[in-house]
Design a protein around this nucleic acid. Structure first.
Lengths: 215, 215
DNA sequence: TGTACATCAGTGAACGCGCGTTCACTGATGTAC
DNA sequence: TGTACATCAGTGAACGCGCGTTCACTGATGTAC
């Protein structure tokens, strides 16, 4: 009796796992990411494991592979989630203040940095996610791509306000301020000898100086 | 016959491994660190292993434990070696230019950043060592301590030149420029859309702005 | 409203593998006489 | 200058363990009629 008792199952696409459909699945996926973030801070990037994540999330190891291609898939999704949240704030900030010109943008820089830091604070694993993105060769492209995207968005706002500045040079300058902004975010969670508000004030001053300066 | 045929061997101190004495040993230890750096860049912090380091260095796994307490001991020594080299350059730079006052220091900032980048370039593993120091919880203290030490040294030079600036505030400001300087060093190896010299020029301008500004 | 059935979500157990580290040991080097 | 011996440097093999991942499967949910 060579009849197949089960219907054939199509293989899933090799590149990426299918997005979850049911509500239950979305929650599982999110919980896996939250736990992964937690563990990143607790045990570090070189000790975290898929089995460990699944165990604490209360699912079997195999369940994790329903949502993520492999271990790096988890970390990449985790990094993207955090950077997307930070970038969303920046885009909103640009929209709010661009009408006010350079003065308004400069005056609210500390506010932007503070908001970004708060997003990091509220993310499980927080700053450890940013650090892992830096340190793992397979993930560092996520950071670079995100920063470039942000720089492009800033260029669109700043270029009309600084018509005399060479566009290429302005992009470079903005790219560097983005790098600095994220470095500040990481430093806030590492150097406890400077009160947060002092860091924000000084950083805003440094960033303001450069953005306002003409050729 | 319960006589001991071998002389008693004293246990080594628990905290740290003894420094190598013979020339051969120094070479082995250095080679282990060089290889560790290489592998950090090739396979990443979460794949590197003590067995892998020993194998490529051409020694047995056990030999590694003669010089390093454990896996983190290797990485910590690697990080300290690089940061010590960078700091030595900065100390020399301060000595050379402090006599010239703020003008001389500001005029040679790009030079300092360039020199630091070259040290990173010439170190096996280069920027990956700096990133690993950030990302591994057990190692991040190395970075912070080194940056504070450097900030202290800068304060001694800058404070007399900026007598009107509050010392505490100056320390904070310098601490942040140090953070920025190292972030720039990492960025140079990550963002290939900006020529190195442009990064150095812009960064020097940003740093100069802040250092020169009074209360 | 009930139900047959397709699809989605998650399980339990296991796999081969390389990990970090240690052990008892041997070979190489330095040194006192 | 030779040599006995203390110390230093490195070996070879193995340990228990948890890793990342996959398999064939079951249970939960949604939906067409």
């Amino acid at each position: 009796m060579p009849t197949a008792k089960r219907p054939k199952r199509k293989a899933e696409p090799a590149a990426l796992r299918a997005a979850p459909i049911q509500e239950r699945a979305k929650q599982t996926r999110d919980r896996l990411l939250d736990i992964a973030g937690e563990l990143l801070g607790e045990v570090g990037i070189e000790r975290i494991s898929t089995n460990m994540i699944a165990a604490r999330a209360g699912v079997s190891p195999a369940a994790l592979y329903r949502y993520f291609k492999d271990k790096y898939g988890v970390l990449e999704a985790l990094g993207r989630r955090l950077m997307d949240r930070q970038n969303a704030l920046l885009f909103a900030w640009l929209d709010t203040h661009k009408a006010g010109g350079l003065d308004a943008l400069g005056a609210h820089t500390a506010e932007l940095l503070r908001g970004t830091a708060e997003i990091t604070d509220n993310e499980p694993g927080g700053v450890w996610i940013l650090r892992a993105l830096r340190a793992v060769p397979q993930l560092s492209h996520v950071r670079v791509e995100s920063h470039r995207e942000v720089t492009d968005a800033m260029l669109e706002v700043y270029a009309p306000l600084l018509p005399k500045v060479n566009k290429r040079r302005l992009w470079q300058r903005l790219r560097m301020t983005v790098e600095y902004g994220y470095a500040i975010d990481e430093m806030l969670h590492e150097e406890d000898r400077i009160p947060r508000e002092d860091v924000l004030r000084e950083a805003a001053a440094m960033l303001g100086n450069v953005q306002l300066e003409d050729e």
